[in-house]
Structures are given as C-alpha cells and as structure tokens.
Design a protein around this nucleic acid. Structure first.
Length: 118
DNA sequence: GTGATGACACAAT
DNA sequence: AATTGTGCCATCA
C-alpha cells in the first residue's frame, strides 16, 4: 500500500480511517490525532462530507463518530440512520439514540501504528 | 489572501 | 442531562 501524501492532511486522515477494522469505531478527535493534527477534529467532519459526496467507497466513513460515542446527526438524520444501519451490519451495537459504547467498540490502534511519524 | 463554514471537543453553566 | 461559550483548523468561495 502506498503511504499517503505527507503534506496533505486529508490523505493522511483517509489513510488512518482505512485502518479502522470492521466492528470498531473511532472518534473524530482520534482520527485527527493519528493523522498528525491533534486539534483538527472538526476538520475531520469536513472531510467525511466530501468522502460521501465523491463516493470514495474505500474510506469507511461510517466508523467515525463523536467523542461522546454518538453518531453525529447535525441536520442530516437520514445519513445518521444510514450510518447506524452500516455499523450494525458490521457488528457494532447502536442504541436507538444513536449511541455506541466506546468502552466496547472503540478502535485501539496497535503499537506499530503509533510509531508512524508523518 | 481573507473571511465564513461546520459529521468536533471540552469546560463551564 | 441539556445548553452555551470558546477554541480550533482544514476547506471553500
């Protein structure tokens, strides 16, 4: 696999998101941190919109949720429901209020991953 | 270049 | 528990 463009935050973020295994979820902040911009959680959301628009099906956008373990629905409930459906199909338990138990499903990147320096 | 925007995060009410 | 305020920062226009 080709490593992402080191100067492009979005490419690094996509790379990180692709590492999230099925059955697990990660938070926006977690992705931002691992992509080398610890405080860019908000920007991660911006990127994910683009992922859906451009149909970048190689990026598992549904596995990214907010720090409260909740699927972000901000003005787009249909998308949230769609995300819930996908997660449940992957084996992630999502409550009726779109909440996921992070203690159970939060992705724990392995050591090798942490060693990556952009 | 500059300012607005938003799938965020966190602390303080 | 639910709101509100503040900081943040990659994108976009």
């Amino acid at each position: 696999m080709t490593l992402p463009d080191l100067d492009d935050f979005s490419e690094r973020a996509y790379y990180v998101i692709r590492q999230i295994p099925e059955g697990s979820v990660a938070t926006y902040g977690q992705i931002a941190f691992l992509a080398g911009a610890p405080r860019a959680a908000r920007a991660v959301g911006t990127l994910l919109r683009r992922v859906i628009e451009n149909q970048q099906d190689d990026v598992p956008w549904a596995r990214v949720i907010n720090a409260q373990g909740r699927i972000s629905s901000k003005g787009d409930m249909p998308r949230a429901e769609r995300q819930r459906r996908i997660l449940q199909r992957e084996g992630v338990d999502v409550s009726a209020s779109l909440k996921v138990d992070l203690d159970v499903h939060e992705w724990q990147p392995d050591h090798g991953f942490w060693a990556v320096a952009w």
